[in-house]
């Protein structure tokens, strides 16, 4: 049980995709303009990660080495497209804001990275837990960056405005994303990573 728990926790701290592995920077920088966008993007990636890890851990023994990357990409792309269709149908609001970035999950290094580094050598349950852990870690990182950028840039949190006025516009745009990410990375590596 302790081992299973640590699989999930690893995704949060030791293998935190954003602050330690520094993977998936494109969605990290682009979608964290507000807390809710970061959270939704994180959850979307979590969904794909868990399912693709499960599928790939099942497929790995029967896929020849030469074609394993194409197979993984096809599998991941399938899950992403399924997610895109489902979001379009049932959460049109979230799809409007994130629509552009959902297809990009296919080329998100985190998903392929976990498939290569973990899912293809481990069992189904372990892979699912790893996907869950890394996905939650990604979601948490994106939400934290989103919260900070939203407070500084728009004076609100999750759309709830508590500072009147425009805020510091730079934090809503790309430079602010780099600044927040950089400082968070410093703090994370100094205090949390052992």
């Amino acid at each position: 049980m302790g081992k299973k728990m640590s699989l999930i926790l690893d995704g949060f701290v030791k293998n935190n995709p954003t602050f330690v592995l520094v993977l998936g920077m494109c969605p990290t920088l682009a979608t964290t303009t507000s807390a809710i966008n970061g959270l939704e993007m994180g959850l979307a990636t979590l969904f794909v990660l868990v399912l693709s890890n499960i599928a790939i851990s099942l497929l790995a023994p029967i896929v020849p080495d030469k074609v394993h990357i194409p197979v993984y990409i096809v599998v991941i792309a399938t899950f992403v497209t399924v997610l895109q269709l489902v979001m379009q149908a049932y959460t049109p609001g979230a799809y409007t804001t994130l629509g552009l970035f959902i297809p990009l999950i296919v080329v998100n290094c985190i998903v392929l990275g976990r498939a290569e580094a973990f899912a293809n050598k481990n069992g189904v349950l372990d892979s699912a837990l790893d996907g869950l852990g890394v996905g939650l870690g990604f979601t948490l990182s994106l939400t934290v960056i989103g919260i900070i950028r939203e407070i500084l840039g728009s004076g609100s949190v999750f759309g709830w405005k508590f500072i009147p006025g425009d805020g510091i516009l730079a934090f809503v745009m790309a430079p602010g994303a780099f600044l927040v990410l950089g400082y968070l990375m410093v703090l994370f590596n100094k205090y949390l990573k052992k």
């Binding site: 497929l59 029967i62 020849p64 074609v67 194409p70 096809v74 599998v75």
Partner: peptide, 8 residues
Amino acid sequence: MVLCLTLV
């Protein structure tokens, strides 16, 4: 190899 990719 080809068979596997096709099936997937």
